[in-house]
């Protein structure tokens, strides 16, 4: 095996796909050739990513269970695609927004009508018309005090 052939076999040695014979030839060459031995050491520094079995490497890192494909499960970084996907869902979104707006308007109106002050001015609201000054208002603690008459003084 010459140097060129040996370097072609680096990847097969790393991936363990070389035949036993080729593997032995390569190892023998590396033992005798300083340049190829050094080249293999340089190769080994990047081989875990460029020539490794990534499933096995990834398994070494703890990872959650594999997810099923789902459009809702998209990363937030990719806004452009999110927009594309969102466009296809617009009818549902508009329906939800309209319902939310209607509920808000109804709730706000109810709250306003239940707490609003009378329209008439304050002076008018506090003054009591003369027609209402009858016996029915006598027991009212809030009714204005009536002037005393002569019969009251006699008793």
């Amino acid at each position: 095996m010459n140097c060129f052939e040996a370097r072609q076999e680096f990847s097969a040695l790393w991936r363990k796909t070389a035949t036993a014979e080729r593997r032995a030839e390569l190892l023998a060459h590396l033992k005798g050739c300083e340049k190829c031995d050094h080249a293999f050491r340089v190769f080994a520094l990047t081989a875990p990513v460029l020539h490794g079995e990534m499933e096995r490497d990834a398994a070494r890192v703890s990872r959650p269970a594999r997810r099923e494909f789902s459009l809702a499960d998209r990363p937030r970084r990719f806004a452009s695609v999110s927009r594309e996907v969102a466009l296809s869902r617009q009818p549902i979104r508009w329906l939800a927004m309209s319902a939310a707006a209607a509920i808000f308007v109804f709730a706000a109106s109810t709250a306003y009508l239940s707490t609003r002050t009378p329209n008439e001015p304050l002076g008018e609201a506090l003054s009591i018309p003369e027609t209402s000054m009858n016996s029915e208002t006598a027991g009212d603690p809030l009714a204005p005090e009536m002037p005393m008459t002569e019969s009251d003084l006699a008793s």
């Binding site: 040695l13 790393w14 050491r41 080994a44 990047t46």
Partner: peptide
């Protein structure tokens, strides 16, 4: 070389350093 191949399989650092490179 054989030890290097075997060791790289066991080490997460080999993978990380390769990425750094």
């Amino acid at each position: 070389p054989e030890e290097i191949v075997g060791d790289a399989e066991e080490r997460r650092e080999a993978y990380d350093l390769a990425h750094r490179l």
